Computed example of a mutant assay.
Amino acid sequence: MKHSVTIRMGAPAWDATINDHRAQATERINSVQQAAQPSFADAAIRIVSGGVNAMTGYNKANTMNFAS
C-alpha cells in the first residue's frame, strides 16, 4: 500500500522560493556577456582600409596596362 505525503508551503515559504528563483534567473540573465557597442572609429578604419585596398589593386592593374 502506497502512501503519499503532500507538503504545503505557507505564504512566506512560497514567497521565499519564488524570490530565490527570481534572483537566480536575474543572475543568469546578467551573467550573459553583452556585445560591445560598435564604434565609429572601427567603421572608419574598415572603410579607409577598403579604399586603400581598392586603390592598391587599381594601381597594380594600371601599371600592368589592365586598367584603361
Rank of each mutant, 00 (worst) to 15 (best):
K2A: 14
K2H: 14
V5M: 12
T6E: 07
I7N: 08
I7L: 09
I7D: 06
I7G: 01
R8V: 06
G10W: 12
A11L: 06
P12A: 12
P12R: 14
A13I: 12
W14K: 06
A16G: 05
T17K: 12
I18E: 02
N19Q: 13
D20Y: 11
H21W: 13
H21R: 13
R22S: 15
R22Q: 14
Q24S: 12
A25K: 06
E27M: 10
E27R: 06
E27A: 15
R28S: 10
R28D: 14
I29T: 11
I29M: 10
S31N: 14
S31R: 11
V32N: 15
Q33N: 05
Q33P: 03
Q33E: 09
Q33V: 06
A35L: 09
A36S: 11
Q37G: 04
P38D: 08
P38I: 00
S39Y: 02
F40H: 08
F40K: 01
D42K: 11
A43Q: 09
A44W: 08
I45R: 09
R46P: 01
R46D: 14
R46C: 01
I47R: 02
I47K: 08
S49V: 01
G50E: 04
G50S: 04
G50Y: 01
G51M: 07
G51E: 05
G51H: 10
V52A: 01
V52I: 04
V52W: 01
N53H: 03
N53M: 05
N53S: 03
M55H: 02
T56H: 14
T56E: 04
G57V: 03
G57A: 04
Y58S: 00
N59H: 11
K60L: 12
A61D: 01
A61W: 02
A61I: 01
N62Y: 05
T63R: 04
T63W: 07
T63E: 10
M64Q: 06
M64E: 12
M64R: 05
N65F: 15
N65M: 08
F66S: 02
F66H: 05
A67G: 03
S68D: 13
